[in-house]
């Protein structure tokens, strides 16, 4: 497909989505505020841990690393958040999916271009201000500029791939609505499992070796752990390339999984009324 055609066909989806999301920007600010509270709790818990351990090293992390890890994981969760699953499930439930199917556009791409408005808005509204605050705090406590532009660049690259993995993962999950009538409970379970599997609560580096190795290989680590570790500067060049390669691998797998589910699910589609 030519780029010009993509732009003409799909950019309107993004534009419309940006407009409707901005209408709820106040909601979003409150939401991010309440999530931020959790980071502060953890920040103080870690401070107490470092105070109790006497040293400034906890399994290879110092307080600065821990601070960055907590807050960057929070920011990354926003950037890579995809709402494709609830959007799809809603359309399947109320039958409006038929409108999307009637249009001469690729189904997955049209959802993607609608969904991508999320990270775009959150990049401006959450990522930029948060990172600035984080870096100012870091600079002040360390007494020098700690910001690493190169790490930040690689972080964004890795974060973009993470978003795409998250998107295809959520699409596949959303297609479950073809088979299950009520996705609500499953949605909560998914959210909580992801939080754990992606290392958002406990950094994977702290987990028992066997568990750590398994989780590091699974696609969930690609969602936030990999980009965050790149930002903190915990990876050597080789590790970074390896993990980035793993991210690409999982992106392909998720893309294929999504296609596969779609192929079998679309045969079951039965829209009532309309």
């Amino acid at each position: 497909m030519r780029l010009g055609k993509i732009r003409k066909l799909y950019f309107p989806f993004t534009r419309a989505s940006i407009q409707s999301t901005l209408m709820y920007s106040v909601n979003m600010i409150f939401f991010s505020l309440s999530e931020l509270l959790y980071c502060f709790v953890m920040f103080y818990v870690w401070k107490a841990v470092f105070a109790a351990s006497g040293g400034d090293d906890f399994m290879g992390f110092d307080m600065q690393d821990m601070f960055l890890y907590l807050f960057m994981t929070n920011v990354t969760a926003y950037l890579t958040m995809s709402q494709a699953d609830s959007a799809i499930a809603e359309e399947i439930k109320d039958g409006s999916i038929s409108m999307r199917l009637l249009k001469p556009v690729n189904f997955n791409l049209s959802v993607l271009f609608k969904d991508i408005a999320n990270p775009m808005i959150l990049f401006v509204m959450v990522f930029v201000p948060m990172t600035v605050c984080i870096e100012i705090y870091r600079g002040v406590t360390a007494g020098m500029v700690m910001f690493q532009p190169l790490n930040c660049l690689f972080y964004l690259l890795s974060g973009a791939v993470a978003y795409l993995i998250s998107f295809y993962m959520n699409m596949s999950f959303g297609f479950l609505a073809f088979y299950v009538t009520n996705l609500w409970g499953m949605g909560i379970l998914k959210k909580i499992l992801l939080k754990f599997l992606s290392g958002a609560v406990i950094p994977l580096a702290f987990m028992p070796t066997v568990l750590k190795n398994i989780l590091a290989f699974l696609p969930f680590a690609s969602l936030s752990y990999t980009p965050v570790m790149i930002y903190i500067g915990k990876y050597s060049i080789t590790e970074m390339l390896l993990n980035f390669g793993l991210q690409i691998f999982w992106l392909l797998m998720m893309f294929l999984l999504c296609k596969l589910i779609w192929k079998s699910a679309i045969k079951r589609l039965c829209v009532q009324g309309g």
Binding site: V45, V49, S53, F58, M59, V180, N182, W184, G185, M186, I188, L189, K191, I192, L193, K195, F196, V201, I202, F206, M207
Partner: peptide
């Protein structure tokens, strides 16, 4: 099913929280 998955998720969520405390206290 929704109820079971809902209750299960809240249990898992808290279990992870406790796991975190255990990891801290291992050090």
């Amino acid at each position: 099913i929704d109820f079971l998955t809902g209750a299960l998720s809240f249990i898992i969520d808290q279990a992870v929280g406790i796991g975190f405390i255990f990891i801290i206290f291992s050090q």
